[in-house]
Structure formats: C-alpha cells, structure tokens
Computed example of a mutant assay.
Amino acid sequence: MAGEPDYPTLLRNAYAMRAASYGHMFDVLRDRFGTETALEIGQESTRRLGESMGVKFASHGPDDLAGLCYAFLDGIPIRDAMFAPEIVCCDDETLEIHFHRCPLKEAWQAQGRSEDDLELLCRMAGAIDGGLFEAAGFVFRGETWKPGDEGCCRLKVLPGPTPAEPAADASA
C-alpha cells in the first residue's frame, strides 16, 4: 500500500520541470535569434503569465502593500522551504521581499547551468513578478539574481497610481 504523496518532493519536481522547460525554450530561442532576442521573448512570455496571475491581487491595489504582502506570500505553497522569503520592508511606501532560495535557480544549478546562464534565466523567469504586481495595480522595481548575490530575487513593490477621478460633466 502506498503512503501519502510526498508533496514537497512533487512540488520541487514540478519546479524542476518548469525550469527545464524555460531553459530549453531559452536555448532554442538563443540559438535561432541570439541572446537579446531570446531574453526579450522569454521575458514577454513570463510577464504575460504574471499578468494573468496578478488579477487575483488587484483588490489590494493600488496601495495596500501589507495586504498584498500577506496575500502573495500565503499563496506560495511550502514557501519557507522553497523560497525562504524575508520581508525586508513592508510599510505604506515600500514592500520589499528577499527570496533566499528559488527552486528554479536551484534546478538550473543542478542542471549544470553557468552563472551567465543563471543570470539570464533568472531575468527571463523574473519578469513574471513585474507582470503580476503591475496587473494588480502596483509599481514593480524588483531585481533578479546576479553572480555574487546572496539568495535570489529581491521583489520591490511600490504603491501604484491612484485611479483618476471621473471627469466632471461639462454639460451640467
């Protein structure tokens, strides 16, 4: 009789498959179109994924950074083991989260990717965050991992623009 599924392992395996998929797509695009175009296409694709995910956080936009912080982090399965997030700042002006781990980056490392490739793949995959937070109504100023950095991404989210007041009816 089989025991309970090992969900952390299944989740890690799913991230490893996603990382492999991103890596293969990036390699094919780079071989065909060059590094810059491959990065541009990959970022646009992951950004669109983030935009579709960001809609569920729109109720926090444009300025409920604390609500966004906890809704976002609470939606990450096994977040502490997978991402080890540190809330660096969460006030009315800035939400900053530093991920000390990333299952995508760890999978790319296990696949033997160079540091140069890691940086490019992190930039490509990290575009998801810009799409997510901007679709939710915020301004995103995050940074992805670079050689020499500790951990992984640093998400920095600022309040978004306040919706414009409806124009007064000039005919009244």
Rank of each mutant, 00 (worst) to 15 (best):
L49R: 15
F57H: 05
R12C: 12
D91M: 01
T94H: 02
E44Y: 13
H24L: 07
E119R: 11
F33I: 06
D80H: 02
M1W: 07
R47Y: 11
G42Y: 02
F72I: 11
E143C: 14
R48S: 02
M124V: 14
S114Q: 05
E115Q: 10
M1E: 02
S59F: 11
D117N: 06
L155W: 08
G67M: 15
A167D: 00
H24M: 02
H24V: 13
E96R: 14
I128V: 12
I128Y: 03
A107P: 02
T144L: 00
S171G: 00
L73I: 15
A66T: 06
S59Q: 04
L65W: 06
P8C: 11
Q109D: 01
D117A: 12
L118P: 10
K146Y: 04
H100W: 05
C69Y: 15
D74S: 12
G34K: 06
Y22H: 09
L120D: 01
R30D: 07
G151H: 11
P161T: 01
A110H: 10
V28M: 06
A19G: 10
A71S: 15
A81T: 14
R12L: 15
E96T: 14
P159A: 02
A127N: 14
Y70M: 08
D116Q: 06
C122Y: 05
H98M: 08
G137E: 13
C89T: 08
L73Q: 13
E106K: 02
M17F: 03
M1I: 11
G75D: 13
G42P: 06
C122K: 05
I128T: 12
D92I: 03
P85D: 08
L132W: 01
C122Q: 08
R30Q: 13
L49S: 15
G50T: 15
C153P: 05
S21D: 04
R79T: 07
L118Y: 07
A20H: 08
Y7P: 03
V28D: 01
A19T: 12
I76P: 04
Y22M: 09
G151L: 06
F57R: 04
Y22G: 02
G75A: 15
K56G: 09
G54T: 01
P103C: 11
K156A: 00
A38S: 11
A127F: 11
H98G: 12
G54K: 09
L121A: 00
